[in-house]
């Protein structure tokens, strides 16, 4: 029984954006770091905020708000960068970062607490695959395949 419960639980990270909250499985998250110097990448899309040093790598940082068609986000005093593992099929050094609006929060999701959101409740963007209503709040789950197409067309 305990094993059954464990199977239904997913450890995730809430990533607060300006007007939405992303929900990413913890397994996709490498680290949460403070916002340091982000160097702009000339000739890049507006949603690419720039690149930052992380460990020995240069990691591109994305404004998810801008990717979804909104205004480019700027760091707030509570902002963090969530460093995410490379997308499926990409090279092992291709980590990427998402700028948060405030401090990310760990979240445990299980089938008893979460209710799947209907399509009408989700932002109108190809970059969101699904949504989950948890305690009256809407958490949206990114479409990683769509992200991959945008990042590496």
């Amino acid at each position: 029984m305990a094993q059954q419960r464990a199977l239904e639980r997913i450890h995730a990270l809430e990533i607060p954006l300006r007007d939405a909250t992303l929900l990413m499985p913890s397994a996709t998250v490498a680290e949460v770091v403070n916002v340091g110097e982000i160097v702009p990448v000339p000739l890049g899309p507006a949603w690419l905020l720039g690149v930052m040093p992380w460990r020995t790598l240069s990691v591109p940082v994305v404004s998810f708000e801008a990717l979804m068609g909104g205004a480019v986000s700027a760091p707030t005093p509570g902002s963090k960068i969530v460093i995410l593992y490379p997308l499926n099929g990409r090279r092992d050094w291709e980590f990427y970062g998402v700028l948060t609006h405030s401090e990310p929060r760990p979240q445990t999701v299980d089938s008893a607490r979460g209710i799947a959101a209907v399509a009408a409740e989700l932002p109108d963007t190809p970059y969101i695959a699904a949504g989950l209503k948890l305690g009256g709040r809407l958490l949206v789950i990114p479409d990683l395949d769509a992200l991959k197409k945008a990042f590496y067309p």
């Binding site: 000339p42 890049g44 899309p45 690419l48 240069s58 994305v62 291709e94 945008a150």
Partner: peptide, 22 residues
Amino acid sequence: ASFEPLGPPPTPAGHVFGGAWI
């Protein structure tokens, strides 16, 4: 180190950056 900018390349020859130095 290797670095590939995200998004569409701005030229037919690809991205104008092919690496990064920390």
